[in-house]
Design a protein around this nucleic acid. Sequence first.
DNA 1: GAATAAGTGTAATAATATAACAATCTTTAC
DNA 2: GTAAAGATTGTTATATTATTACACTTATTC
Lengths: 177, 177
Amino acid sequence: MMSNSTDAYQQHDHHRCLKTALAQAKNRCIARKARLTPIRESVLHLLWQSHRPLGAYKIIDQLSEETGKRVLPPTVYRALDFLLELGLIHRLATLNAYIGCPFPDSAHSDCFLLCRECGSVAECSTANVNKSIASTAEQAGFLVESQTVEILGLCTPCQEKMPQPNKAKPIKPEADE
Amino acid sequence: MMSNSTDAYQQHDHHRCLKTALAQAKNRCIARKARLTPIRESVLHLLWQSHRPLGAYKIIDQLSEETGKRVLPPTVYRALDFLLELGLIHRLATLNAYIGCPFPDSAHSDCFLLCRECGSVAECSTANVNKSIASTAEQAGFLVESQTVEILGLCTPCQEKMPQPNKAKPIKPEADE
DNA sequence: GAATAAGTGTAATAATATAACAATCTTTAC
DNA sequence: GTAAAGATTGTTATATTATTACACTTATTC
């Protein structure tokens, strides 16, 4: 399993995450003959400020403040589209928010772990989830093209910080197969 | 595996789907001492017109037309919230749209198969997917509370209708009529 | 039958995202 | 080097999805 969960939820050298992400982005742009313009790089940089996803309008506000001039929605949405296209970021459908991809170089189907307490999101890529989804789809005669898997819950540090022993309810059990 | 994929994608006695869904809804409301008011029932009925999800504003438009008076967003969103709360419908995060639940009576975590061609959506509940997600989360020390799994692709009939592999064409909740 | 709770009506607005077209900057072709 | 073509950005306007706040009505309870 590929995952950035330890980085995402704990104290770590985040500067390294940022640096790596920007380096990978540059490489990827060169490989694809695409231009990482200042706006695009700024948006990517903002998304790598932390492991918490940002909504488009948060990006707009932060970028406006950074540059001192009013940045308008299309500017940011275009940058986001570009970064999505190159696989440098992801959009989280359940949050309407965006986050940097820690593994832009490896083709992968994603599984996101969204901590409802601290807001941080880790990305995993697991053969198991993909296999089970593929097999489920196959049983239904369905041809998979893309998949969205977003898991809401609590990361380890937030579980430990929860006062109650009944920290959180697990998901409902399965009826039958 | 529990799934309504054969119904969802093929010719079938849809009247039966509708009838079952409404009957289940009534039972569930009685069990929960909740009221299936005319508005709520109308919204549920609209969502069971087909196996294609409907956006909230499509529901608003259809309900306005049905009743001859302008139905406003809060009316519909309140009905949707009620139906979601009772597990009678689901919200599809990737489409911002709503769809009737074929299995309101069995506690389940859901997996949706969204056909990008015909727009129909089937719901599956599979222990395998849940197990693989649980195991992935566990490896990351993450406590799962809820999950969103939406799979985009082609249903069997649409695969057969489409020998030419067509590329990305985003599906819409419902075609305009 | 009054008190309370639940549900609905209405106006306004928030939050997220896109369309359309003009202006500018980069790259390419000559 | 320069003009044409293409890519990127600026700008205005608007579409789409969802919520807040408060007034009013209907149903339930005692």
